[in-house]
């Protein structure tokens, strides 16, 4: 019984961690290219999910509706990179961060303006009634949560392969580590960075419809997830997809176990646990578990 309870909590931690990891992947995609922390990533995912929802509500079959949202996400990513990020130039960390803050406020308000403040229910891609689960050692593995995990693993494998083994991935690494030399040898740095934003927008837009059935769809659905995603990406290393997944799962599991078994922490300091982990990692190993150590000039 005690063990079963522990297993249940472990699985719940993994479920939450998968969401953090998923969004962290999107952060990694933008960071790899533009070295930008896109704080508006969650809001972008949210508004794309609303687009999918509107499509589905107007009779478009759910998979197509989600695809529509993903396309919108990718295009918005490209548009943001081209019009708002690229002109600021490289190394403009703070300007980019501020643009993202502006985007955050604007997108959130825009979604509230269009779709209102009431939470909406979002249809699930697989059966999601209370008894739609696989029992394993007394733990309920729900179909919907398995889908999120599977999609996450497929995505990270694909991203890893792309970053590691394709010409595009090579250009991306070259562009990230030394943009000037990269462009000298013919890498189209801007285009590579733009693709990072496209990927990020699409990944976020895919995550929204997967979690919306359980979180409900609302303008505030990503407020805390984006913070967890930042923590996850930091733990894993901001430019490593695999790191992001490990970081996400680590934070999800740790906060859940700590909150459940350490009375002083309890439910109310869950987020604090993740933030403390973030701080500790930044103090001990800023590049994270699997991140590339940046060349420092001091």
């Amino acid at each position: 019984m005690e063990f079963e309870l522990f297993l249940t909590r472990l699985v719940q931690g993994i479920n939450n961690g998968a969401i953090y990891a998923f969004l962290a992947l999107a952060l990694v995609c933008t960071y790899r290219g533009s070295k930008a922390l896109n704080l508006a990533q969650g809001e972008l995912a949210m508004i794309c999910t609303f687009v999918s929802w509107s499509l589905a509500a107007n009779g478009v079959p759910l998979p197509l509706a989600i695809l529509g949202g993903v396309v919108v996400g990718g295009l918005s990513g490209a548009a943001i990179e081209r019009t708002l990020i690229r002109p600021l130039g490289r190394d403009a960390h703070y300007s980019v961060l501020l643009v993202c803050v502006g985007l955050f406020l604007a997108i959130n308000a825009l979604a509230g303006f269009i779709w209102g403040g009431d939470p909406q229910s979002f249809p699930a891609v697989v059966p999601d009634a209370p008894d739609d689960f696989v029992p394993v050692m007394g733990v309920r593995l729900r179909y919907q949560q398995l889908v999120i995990l599977v999609v996450l693993l497929v995505l990270v494998a694909a991203l890893y392969a792309v970053f590691r083994y394709t010409r595009f991935g090579l250009s991306m690494r070259a562009a990230a580590s030394n943009p000037d030399s990269a462009s000298l040898v013919g890498v189209r740095v801007n285009r590579v960075n733009a693709w990072g934003w496209v990927l990020a927008g699409a990944v976020g837009a895919l995550l929204g419809p997967l979690i919306a059935p359980s979180t409900t769809l609302s303008t505030s659905m990503f407020f805390t997830f984006i913070i967890y995603a930042c923590a996850a990406a930091t733990v894993g290393g901001f430019d490593s997809p695999i790191g992001a997944v490990i970081g996400g799962l680590f934070i999800g599991v740790t906060e859940n176990l700590v909150a459940s078994y350490v009375g002083f922490i309890g439910d109310s300091l869950k987020l604090t646990v993740a933030l403390v982990i973030l701080l500790v990692v930044l103090m001990v190993k800023p590049s994270g578990l699997l991140g590339t150590r940046e060349v420092e000039r001091v």
């Binding site: 600021l88 300007s95 501020l98 803050v101 502006g102 955050f104 406020l105 604007a106 308000a109 825009l110």
Partner: peptide
């Protein structure tokens, strides 16, 4: 539900 938030965000971006 006015657009104040949108305007605010856009102003930040424009000024940047």
């Amino acid at each position: 539900q006015n657009l104040a938030g949108v305007v605010f965000g856009v102003i930040i971006i424009l000024i940047t």
